[in-house]
Design a protein around this nucleic acid. Structure first.
Length: 106
DNA sequence: AATTTGACGACCG
DNA sequence: TCGGTCGCCAAAT
């Protein structure tokens, strides 16, 4: 259980600056639980890590802390599209060390 | 023990 | 693109 928390935090710490990650991605990485569970863990223990690098699947920052998150993301040069993160460019799935994905540069 | 809630996601219109 | 609905998993009440 606490083990799970530890994993989530580790995963979040693995996200490089200027990049973000979705709750679902972390859940998938851990191969366990769901996005919501990850969200809950973050709500409690997320203060110790770069929580602002974890966003929703639609690119919207954390609920309730959108301002701070947005500011921090900007400070890290994260690709933003208005008040949302541009997931096409910023999404970090823990396995994209190679850029072969047919990512359209719209 | 049952129900509601939450730092969510996918689908549909 | 935006809003509503349903599904999901664990914790809180």
């Amino acid at each position: 259980m606490e083990d799970y928390v530890e994993r989530v935090l580790t995963a979040v710490e693995a996200i490089p600056p200027g990049r973000v990650c979705a709750y679902s991605d972390i859940a998938e990485l851990l191969g366990q639980g769901g996005p919501r569970q990850v969200g809950r863990v973050m709500a409690q223990y997320g203060g110790a890590v770069a929580w602002w690098r974890v966003v929703r699947a639609d690119g919207r920052p954390v609920r309730g802390l959108e301002e701070s998150a947005l500011a921090r993301l900007r400070a890290e040069n994260t690709p933003l599209r208005g008040d949302r993160v541009d997931l096409r460019l910023a999404r970090f799935t823990f396995a994209d060390h190679d850029f072969d994905s047919p990512r359209d540069t719209r």
